[in-house]
């Protein structure tokens, strides 16, 4: 039995979600082939070789994989899987994986399982539905399952392996779509999905200026990533990739600090598996306090600067 792990990479770096997904692939107990498709992707291939538990790295290098377009990648994966022996195709439940996996599944005529948080055995998975308010055990008799894996539910696979590289021929260039622009947020801070501390701001901050004036120093002090509620993103305080929640990013850091966030179920869906939750909100009845380990009922405009200076004091 083999599983195919689709690597996500950018600028020569593997996405951390790929390492978490490798741990889910290991639950199948067979060989793991890691597919790295790209153009000039040797650096990513080298990192994939190091994933502990990887048996082989399938390297596909062609100009039409320079961008991770779903149409071309899905056609490639379908071709590789058709050659046989795979029990499952796994990819991280990132925007890359969510875009790609269902297309692969439909081409292979199988159902896909999204946001898998547990692999009990091949064909037996667990996943959240209804914004994480319900967990459902899913069983499949399909010969092949296509899964997206929720990173927060699996540890990153260790590095140190030395998987062999097998060069695989490119699939077709379908020419259906192309990238015409990209605006990536640049940040020196840790990646939101993988950070051990996250500071998140909501509508209570009132403006983008306040958001940064108050939360940047706090995040600096804590070495934290910055996140936000949907309301803060919709109001333009911060870009879309800050959004935590049912339809944004799922995070589970050691410490999550929610500032001026009410705690709607759609927000909780993205952060309630954090180890320790702190909430700062002036409304004592805000639902966020029902999940917070430490709740501070206070005006954030006073509490946050005080918090920053007391962290400085130590």
């Amino acid at each position: 039995m083999k599983t195919l792990l689709i690597a996500e990479h950018e600028n020569g770096r593997l996405a951390t979600a790929t390492l978490n997904t490798a741990s889910a692939a290991a639950r199948f107990g067979g060989e793991i082939d890691v597919l790295v498709a790209g153009h000039g992707c040797d650096a990513a291939v080298a990192q994939a070789q190091a994933i502990a538990g990887a048996s082989r790295v399938l390297k596909v290098d062609a100009a039409h994989y320079a961008e991770p377009l779903a149409e071309n990648l899905a056609a490639l994966v379908t071709g590789i899987v058709a050659d046989g022996g795979y029990r499952a195709v796994l990819v991280g439940a990132t925007s890359f994986g969510k875009n790609l996996a269902p297309r692969v599944a439909a081409l292979l005529d199988v159902a896909a399982v999204s946001d898998v948080v547990a692999v009990a055995a091949p064909g037996r998975y667990e996943r959240p539905i209804y914004a994480g308010n319900v967990m459902v055990a899913v069983e499949s008799d399909q010969p092949l399952d296509v899964l997206t894996i929720r990173s927060t539910a699996f540890d990153a696979a260790p590095l140190g392996g030395e998987a062999a590289v097998q060069v695989v021929a490119a699939g077709p260039d379908l020419g259906l779509s192309r990238v015409v622009g990209r605006e990536l947020s640049k940040s020196e801070r840790p990646e939101l999905g993988a950070a051990s501390i996250v500071v998140s701001g909501g509508r209570g901050l009132g403006s983008g200026e306040n958001y940064h004036r108050l939360l940047d120093p706090l995040a600096d002090k804590l070495g934290a990533a910055l996140g936000a509620s949907r309301a803060a993103v919709d109001a333009g305080f911060v870009p879309n990739d800050y959004q935590v929640g049912q339809t944004g990013k799922i995070v589970a850091p050691g410490l999550y600090v929610a500032v001026g966030i009410s705690g709607a179920i759609q927000h909780l869906a993205g952060m309630k598996d954090s180890k320790v939750i702190v909430a700062i909100n002036k409304d004592p009845d805000a639902p966020i306090f029902q999940v917070a380990d430490y709740g501070l009922v206070a005006d954030l405009f006073e509490a946050v600067p005080t918090l920053v200076s007391s962290l400085e004091a130590a």
Binding site: S95, S177, G181, R182
Partner: peptide, 17 residues
């Protein structure tokens, strides 16, 4: 224009799409 993990990306798709 798509909301992706790192920010925004704009694709041009041939119709139908």
């Amino acid at each position: 224009t798509r909301e992706i993990d790192g920010g925004l990306e704009t694709l041009e798709l041939k119709l139908p799409a």
